[in-house]
Amino acid sequence: MDLTVVILVEMLYAVASLILISAGLAVIFGMMKVINLAHGEFMMMGGYATITAVNLGVNIFMAMLIIAPIVVGLIGLVVERLVIRHLYGRLVDTMLATWGLSLFFIGLATMIFGNTTTGISTPIPGFAIGNYQINGYNFFIIVIAILLLIGMLAILKATRAGLIARGAMQRSDMAAALGYSPDRIYLATFFCGSALSGLAGAVLAPLVGLVPTSGGAYIAKAFITVIAGGPSLIAGLFSSAGFFGIVNQIFTFAISPVIGEVALLVAAVVLLRLLPQGITGKFFKGNF
């Protein structure tokens, strides 16, 4: 009984962290069709922003939920203006340029913070279920992921800004003809995507030792989650994160964490081979 609860919580946690990791990329890649290979580094910078802020005496939740997204969002703004802006519509070039950016940020972080592991302790204590110890912070991540999904859904579906953004992503010329500046909309969307990446990096920072190269651990997972999700942003994110998270945890518990990771990747290859349009390309067409 206790074990069942623990496994259930771990599965929910795995799904939630996949949603967090992929949300920023889902906006930048799913909506803007910019393959952001610097996504992992955006997360890494979110983590460093949190740790720096906490060391300066800021409350940890404040640092994670407000400062990190804003800092990374601003970095995203600069990146969009300097690099990405010139490459819209050139899929392969965005991929290469952002790969360059990712290396650039790794180098920058190494120069500033050094090639050492830094970290902060989790702000929520663990507790016991029967004979098992559970990390209380896991629940925080699950809650954040749920709030994030609801928030994204609400903004995209229920607000005028979301409507304009979705419209401009589909037909930027029509949006321009109706008096909205696609340039600004792209800029704002990229800001949101980067801020989401920063938030994810910040929230996950207490769980991992942070090194300048830790972004690489996220990028592949984020990518396969978003691509396997397919064209519909939120349903896709939810379904593919659910699928991969559960596969990962089943194999983690049954065999070992490494096999869990490998199983996730193998599942991704098989899934993409069977459903090259992604899960939502096949099953929930066209709904956000």
């Binding site: 690099v83 290469l96 340029a97 360059g100 650039f104 790794i106 180098g107 190494t110």
Partner: peptide
């Protein structure tokens, strides 16, 4: 003085932008 990775990244970005 300057980190190696940083320069590699910068080279890639500059090439994609200016000399694709």
């Amino acid at each position: 003085v300057v980190d190696n990775t940083l320069i590699t990244g910068l080279i890639l970005v500059l090439f994609v932008l200016f000399l694709p």
